[in-house]
Amino acid sequence: MEKLEDQGIPRTTVLKAAYASMPAIIIEPHYVPQSTEASGPAEWSHRITAKVDPQILRSIAAAVRNGNKAPKSALLLGQIEPNWFSSLDSIIKDFEG
Rank of each mutant, 00 (worst) to 15 (best):
L15I: 07
P41E: 11
K16E: 13
G97V: 12
I60C: 01
L15Y: 07
K72V: 10
L88P: 00
M22K: 01
M1A: 06
I48W: 06
S59C: 12
P33N: 03
F85A: 04
A20F: 10
L75M: 06
P41M: 09
L76T: 01
L15C: 02
V52L: 02
I80F: 03
L4W: 00
G67E: 00
F85I: 04
T36F: 08
H30A: 12
R58C: 09
Y19C: 03
I27M: 04
M1F: 02
I60P: 02
L15N: 03
L76I: 12
G67L: 00
K69Q: 15
S90L: 09
T49L: 02
P82E: 07
Q79H: 08
I48Y: 01
F85P: 01
E96D: 15
A63E: 15
E81P: 05
S21P: 03
S73H: 11
H46L: 01
P54L: 07
T12L: 14
M22E: 03
K3L: 00
A38V: 15
A61S: 12
I91L: 06
S39N: 10
S73L: 10
K16A: 12
W44D: 12
S87E: 00
L75Q: 05
G40M: 11
S87G: 05
D89W: 06
D53P: 04
M1Y: 04
I25D: 00
R65I: 11
F95T: 04
L88W: 00
I91G: 00
A42P: 10
S39H: 12
G8Q: 13
S35F: 07
P71D: 06
A20I: 04
L57N: 03
G97A: 14
E5M: 11
T49Y: 05
V64R: 05
I60H: 01
E81R: 05
S39G: 11
I60Y: 05
P23H: 08
I25F: 09
V14I: 14
A18C: 09
S90K: 14
E37M: 10
S87I: 07
P71M: 03
A17R: 04
E37A: 14
P54G: 01
R11G: 07
D89S: 11
K51W: 13
A42R: 10
K69N: 14
T13P: 01
T49Q: 07
E96M: 15
E96A: 15
T49W: 00
Y19N: 02
V32G: 01
I9V: 15
A17W: 06
W44T: 10
K93I: 11
T12K: 13
A74M: 12
E37K: 14
N68L: 11
E81Y: 07
E81I: 02
G78V: 02
E28Y: 13
E5T: 10
D53R: 09
I91Y: 00
L76D: 02
I92N: 08
